[in-house]
């Protein structure tokens, strides 16, 4: 007959009971808690990935928007530059034309002034010549010269009158 040491048996039984109890009341809740925790973390990871994906999409969308805004901005800048260049050209052309107009006006005025001055000068020259001639004649016309003048000038005048009379008779 086998001699059984009951204390060992009891110890084994106690151990088994302890293990069962531990499994029942410690391991299972722990495993469940871990699973729950793991699931929660997975959900959080999934949510985070979804958020990350959404954020990435949003980032791409924002980048596209930024790109569009940048293009629009460049387009507007280019348009504004073109408009400014056109305005600048118009202003320059207008100023040039105005300048040409003023220049022509001044040239015209200057020409008129020159012509006026020359006209005055011519008149003055003629007046001076006339004065000199009159002075000379006053000293040079003697009764003899006067006789010659009367004869010569009357000869010319009477001849002209005779020619005119002949012409009117012929008519």
């Amino acid at each position: 007959m086998i001699n059984v040491d009951w204390s060992i048996v009891f110890q084994i039984i106690n151990f088994i009971v302890l293990v069962l109890l531990l499994v029942r009341f410690l391991f299972k809740p722990a495993v469940q808690a871990l699973e729950s925790r793991s699931k929660h973390i997975e959900e959080q990871i999934s949510a985070a990935e979804a958020q990350k994906k959404a954020a990435e999409e949003l980032r791409i969308k924002l980048e596209e928007e930024e790109q569009k805004i940048q293009e629009k901005y460049l387009e507007m800048i280019e348009e504004a530059n073109k408009e400014a260049a056109k305005v600048k050209e118009d202003i320059i052309n207008e100023a040039y034309q105005e300048g040409e107009k003023i220049k022509k006006e001044y040239e015209k005025r200057a020409q008129k002034e020159i012509e006026k001055l020359f006209s005055q000068l011519r008149e003055e020259i003629v007046e001076i010549v006339e004065t000199v001639v009159v002075k000379i004649l006053n000293t040079q016309i003697t009764p003899e010269v006067q006789t010659q003048l009367i004869d010569r000038l009357l000869e010319e005048a009477v001849s002209q009158i005779e020619e005119q009379m002949e012409v009117s008779y012929e008519k």
Partner: peptide
């Protein structure tokens, strides 16, 4: 009239004065 003569009778006028001759020369010069 400086020189020459001016003759007038009726409606006829013959101006042979040096003054008139000078005036004509002056106008022609101008």
């Amino acid at each position: 009239i400086l020189g020459g003569v001016i003759i007038a009778w009726g409606e006829t006028l013959i101006d042979c004065s040096v003054k008139t001759q000078l005036q004509k020369i002056k106008e022609r010069m101008l």
